[in-house]
Design a protein around this nucleic acid. Structure first.
Lengths: 209, 209
DNA sequence: GTCTATAGAAGGATAGAC
DNA sequence: GTCTATCCTTCTATAGAC
C-alpha cells in the first residue's frame, strides 16, 4: 500500500465519519461521502467494499473515542471533589468539540443490537466503579454509586445531546447556549457535590433499604 | 367520511406512529407501516398522499404528547419540594410507558431545522419558568433557574434515552434496569432537593457573578 | 374505499477502460 | 488506483380494476 493509497483511504474515512456522524447510517448517502472526499463513488467500494463495512469502521472509531475520553478522566489521581470538577470540565469541553458524537452513538446503538454489544464490550465499568468506590468510601453507601454515576453522566451528556432544543429554548429567554454550557462546567459539579454533602448531613434520616 | 374510513385512517396512523417512533423517518418503510396496519401500501397514499406528510402528522402528535406531559406536571399547585418529587414520579412513569418517545423527538429535531421550529413553537417555557420562579423565590438566585430546569430534565430524560446502554452496563453489575429506574424516581428528586438545600446553607460562600 | 400491478426515482454496487 | 457508465435492487408513488 503506497502513501497515496493511505491518503485516499483516510480522506474517505474522514469524509465518512463526518457524514455518518451527522446523518446516521440510514440517511447517509454514499454519494454524499464521495462528494465530501472529492472522489468518485466507485472508489468507496474499492476501499471499503460496502456501505455497511465503511459504517462499521467509522462506528468502531467513534465509539472508542467516546468511551476512552470518559474512562481516562476517571483514571486521574486526585481527591474526589476535585475529580468531579475535573471530569465536568474535561468531558464537557470534549463534547463541545464533538457535539454530534453522543447522539450518533445513542441513535445507532438503539437501532442495532449488534452495535450495542460492540459498544458494551468496550465498556468495562467495574474498573471505574471500584475507583469511585475507593474515593468516596464512607461518604456514600455502596448501592448509591451506580445512581451517582448515572447522575454525573446525565448532567454532562444531556445538555449536549439536546443542543438544538436547548439552544432554541434558551434563546427565547435571552440566554446564549455557548455561555450556558460554559457556566455549566462549574454549576453541574457544584450541584453534584452539594447533593452529596447534604446527603451526609442527613445520613441518619435516610432509609437504607 | 364514514366510520369505516375513520377506522382505517386511524389504524394507519397508529401503525405509522409505531414504525416511525422505532426507526425514524429515514429508516422507516412504507411497506412496514402497511404490514403493521394489515392493509395495502396503496392505501397509505390514498389517506396521506406521501410518506413525508404521514410522518409530519405523526411528529405533530408525538411532539405535542411529549411536551404536554412535561408542562402539565408543573401546572400542579403544591409546595416546591413536593412538586419536584411529583414531577419525577409522573414524568419518569410516563417515559417508562413511552420509552422511544424522547429519542424520537431528539433524533428528528436534530435532523431537520423545520421540525425543530415546529417543536419550539409548542414550547412556551416562560410560563413554567415564572411558576418555578415564584415557587423558589428567595431560595435560589434568578439566574440559577435555567440551570436547575436543565438539571431536572437531564436527570429525568437521559436514563430513558440511554436505556439500551444503561441496561447493558447495569446488568454487568448485576442490577436490573427496571428496578434501577424505579429507585430513580426517588433518588433523583432527593438529589435535586439536597443540592438546593446545601446551596442555601452556603449561599454566602458562592460568587454571585 | 381497497386491491393488484407497475411506473419511476434513488441509491448501492460492479464492470471495464485507462 | 481512479474514473465513467451501467446494472440491479429497493422504495415511493400512481394507474386502474373492482
Amino acid at each position: 500500500m503506497t502513501a497515496t493509497d493511505k491518503h485516499t483511504e483516510s480522506k474517505i474515512f474522514e469524509a465518512a465519519t463526518e457524514i455518518f456522524e451527522e446523518k446516521g447510517l440510514a440517511a447517509a448517502r454514499m454519494q454524499d461521502i464521495a462528494d465530501r472526499a472529492s472522489i468518485n463513488k466507485a472508489l468507496l467500494h474499492y476501499y471499503f467494499r460496502t456501505k455497511e463495512k465503511l459504517f462499521m469502521a467509522v462506528f468502531d472509531k467513534l465509539a472508542e473515542k467516546m468511551f476512552r475520553k470518559f474512562a481516562s478522566i476517571f483514571e486521574e489521581d486526585m481527591p474526589f471533589e476535585e475529580k468531579i470538577r475535573y471530569f465536568f470540565y474535561e468531558h464537557m469541553s470534549f463534547l463541545e468539540k464533538n457535539p454530534k458524537l453522543p447522539m450518533f452513538i445513542l441513535t445507532e446503538v438503539n437501532r442495532s443490537p449488534e452495535l450495542l454489544d460492540k459498544f458494551l464490550s468496550m465498556v468495562n465499568i467495574s474498573n471505574i466503579k471500584s475507583k469511585i468506590s475507593a474515593d468516596i468510601s464512607g461518604s456514600l453507601p455502596e448501592e448509591a454509586i451506580p445512581h451517582l454515576m448515572v447522575s454525573i453522566i446525565s448532567l454532562s451528556v444531556f445538555p449536549i445531546v439536546a443542543k438544538p432544543i436547548l439552544q432554541g429554548i434558551l434563546s427565547q429567554a435571552g440566554i446564549e447556549y455557548r455561555q450556558f454550557i460554559k457556566e455549566r462546567k462549574q454549576v453541574a459539579p457544584d450541584f453534584i457535590i452539594n447533593a452529596i454533602r447534604q446527603y451526609n448531613v442527613q445520613t441518619n434520616n435516610k432509609p437504607q433499604k
